[in-house]
Design a protein around this nucleic acid. Sequence first.
DNA 1: CTTGGCACTCAACCATCATGAGTGCTAGTA
DNA 2: TACTAGCACTCATGATGGTTGAGTGCCAAG
Lengths: 340, 340
Amino acid sequence: MDERARHLLKSLIEQHIAKGVPVGSRQLARDAGLNISPATVRNVMADLEDEGYLISPHTSAGRIPTHVGYRFFVDALLRVVPLSAESNRLLIHRIGFRAPDAEQVLHAATGILSELTHMAGFVRVPRRATRILRHVDFIALREREVLAIFVTDKGDVENRLIRTEQPFGAAELTQAANFFNATYGGRPLQDVIHNLQRDLQQSRHEMDRILRSAMELGEEMLEEDQQRMLIEGEFQWLDLPELAGSERLRELLAAVRQKRDLVHLLDESMRGSEVRLFIGEESGYAPLSDCSVVSAPYSVDGEVVGVLGVIGPMRMPYQQIIPLVDGTAQLLGRALSQSG
Amino acid sequence: MDERARHLLKSLIEQHIAKGVPVGSRQLARDAGLNISPATVRNVMADLEDEGYLISPHTSAGRIPTHVGYRFFVDALLRVVPLSAESNRLLIHRIGFRAPDAEQVLHAATGILSELTHMAGFVRVPRRATRILRHVDFIALREREVLAIFVTDKGDVENRLIRTEQPFGAAELTQAANFFNATYGGRPLQDVIHNLQRDLQQSRHEMDRILRSAMELGEEMLEEDQQRMLIEGEFQWLDLPELAGSERLRELLAAVRQKRDLVHLLDESMRGSEVRLFIGEESGYAPLSDCSVVSAPYSVDGEVVGVLGVIGPMRMPYQQIIPLVDGTAQLLGRALSQSG
DNA sequence: CTTGGCACTCAACCATCATGAGTGCTAGTA
DNA sequence: TACTAGCACTCATGATGGTTGAGTGCCAAG
């Protein structure tokens, strides 16, 4: 592909992103800034179409980029602009300076992504598999009901009600918690569960029931964790002419509610530390075949713990979205590192 | 209004609920079962229109009920059918038999409301103002970071990170927690906050900083509580021809995201113990002027703690929705009473 | 009071037509 | 050889106008 073709492709995609309608040869010839006639542009476009970068919705309707075209665009043509001062200030204001607890920071990040991009924003919450168990508490709520509370080193708190067969007194429970903390505290959660399983098989202590339930809670924390994802701003999709009023929108909404496959896709993108794009069919996930996902992993204390980003139409202003997602990921990581 | 007019109004509304289109005199005359000509029906309908129960979208389009019409319908004409055995079984299955923790039960209730009614379901979560403080824990996460955990008698757990100026050791924190529990444990949360404020003004204990933060946390629990509402299934509104593709849908979505006014409306409906309906403009809340809200308060241990229900078009099958919302409220109350 | 009849209204549907944006192709030009 | 002008063709879009059918209001007769 020669220089001129690249320039035209870039110009076409930019126009299509801006306007949302197919771009014709006349307009492209005018706006591309080259002194070139529409006919010449048509020749170039025909070539680009042959090579799979463009497609015509119908015979006389100009061209729109394919996912291959977008891919080439972002890889080879796009110059990512740095985050605007205004956006940056907003990000810092919304994420950086408010860290009362991790959950709220995550919510704030999801919201701000959606607001600034006018698309759906998501945050895959930190996984706790490698988190360290900080503290366990057993509290007697009523007869035969014990509330178990787990705290990890990052301040995540998880709790669960356990029904027991015998009643336990407060003193007994405190003792159990002390034992638990002394034995398993300060170890990674998965180790705790593993050891607990082993230990429970050996001993037949009267506390077994509670410990076993605590173990299940721990397992659940790891398990549930697989699915946890915040998503916000799906309603922004209503504005998009390419989706609006069709079955596709419904499918998409159902898909993000389902979350399962989406989470799988995102876990993929947690490898590496860069912003990553899934354009159209690239995600390999049918309901997303008209959409793009821009994601970036975020790190706490140097370790990648989650991923965030936005989901929107293929036609999205990548040059702004990419730095925004990137910036949000970095700020979120920093905010979480601070807040623990 | 005579017996015949009532019968026709009832029949008209039922047909409109079923079909969603304006009902004309011919069809109404046929389906009402009375041996009456369309012309007669027209006379009756004209009267009903004068009295504000019906309205014509345009000159030749049959009639649809106004919110006054629906109100009369539900108050005077509707015979609520008992919950179908199938729905009841489903409810019990989804809410009754699963009570690992309160949060999940609430989510389950929201989901099942939305699923069974094909509308948006909501659950206003229990308010904790009157809850009794069961247990407080302070855990040192890092230097100068303390995690405070509150547990109420119903098993709600709330946590918050507190930054302190001086570092605290684990022993100190344990001592502080013990003191806190001894002094304030077993009292209603609002009393705790009140007393705490008083006590802090009097004494200048070295623990003040932590206690003050704990107090703030307590206040926040009550505060944030004002806003908490789960809502699910807004996307069901996409199916409705009366809303679809219009600005109204957008407004509605924005309104439920905002929550504030909605929560206010629902708090109103917590007085009393019956199912309550807000039909159209009755809610006094503009974005809901095309919608109805069916709500029912739910009680734990005899005390009303929250309210749940559905939000959908005025044209909803009230005879099924009402018992469903009612039943869900009762089951939820029971489930929460069990699970603590 | 009820009913049949009649004139009228109006949304919805359909076919038709003009418009204009856009294309591919070809032949001529720099 | 690369570019351009011209031309015939395609096709979505939007306007126009007629038809249909459901529905109404009103009136006069039963």
